[in-house]
Amino acid sequence: MATRGERIFDIFLWLLAGLVFVVLYAPVAISALFSIVEVRRGDILWETATLEWYARLWQNQSIMDAIRLTLVVGATSVVLSAMLAVALALYVTREDALGRRFIELAVYLPFLLPPIVTGLALLMFFSQVGVSRGAVAVIIGHGAFVLAVIYRLVVTRLQSLPASLVEASSDLGATRWQTFRHVLWPQIAPAVVTGSILALALSFDETLITSFLAGNEMTLPIRLWAMMRVGFTPEINALVTVVLLVSIALTIVIGLRLRAGGRE
């Protein structure tokens, strides 16, 4: 039986969680509000309510360009990163692998270090080897940043597999490639997909590293940052609302997949 004190404590915890919940979800509520009605000096003018801005969204060229670039950067960097992550994971789980910790350090660093350091390091490196700021630089930056996430999930999955699986396959005369294609890949594919969705979500929102590498080719967060200095129009708020809802949906998908994976 819960004592009176415990019940009061419980109520306090729920109140705190509720308050934090409201603050954390304020971005969605406020963007949605500003996209529908006009707010002047903190007063909400309900008579101005309209959904017109959502229809006009598609006509803003600079925003559409930014979204297109964001998607191209996300898809390219995630595919490249996923391939590299699988190759590295296969390598470090080999029994005769050299420098395992060295490779893991290099993989995890861009994810752990403050993005200002990663961004700066890549900017300076690129300036010396002649890669100019722009889409290519951003793709490499995002690739380095999200690699750790996909790698981590794939390695964990590979380590959970019994060694007998590969041994049986080679005993039966399968080549290395056949073993990978028909034995290992089906086992790690779910981890690769989950990692890639997670990586895509990270790439979609990456701002700090990108700010050093983008130059004139702006991804969506960089474009929004530039627009923030003059204030968001209702149109931008409409866009932001859509983007937030998409990222919420994506997170729920990741959550469901991670939960299903953990149950296996």
């Binding site: 971005p27 929102d205 940052w225 932001v240």
Partner: peptide
């Protein structure tokens, strides 16, 4: 996973 820039805004 909500937009960092939008949170600041």
């Amino acid at each position: 996973f909500m937009s960092y820039i939008v949170k600041i805004y």
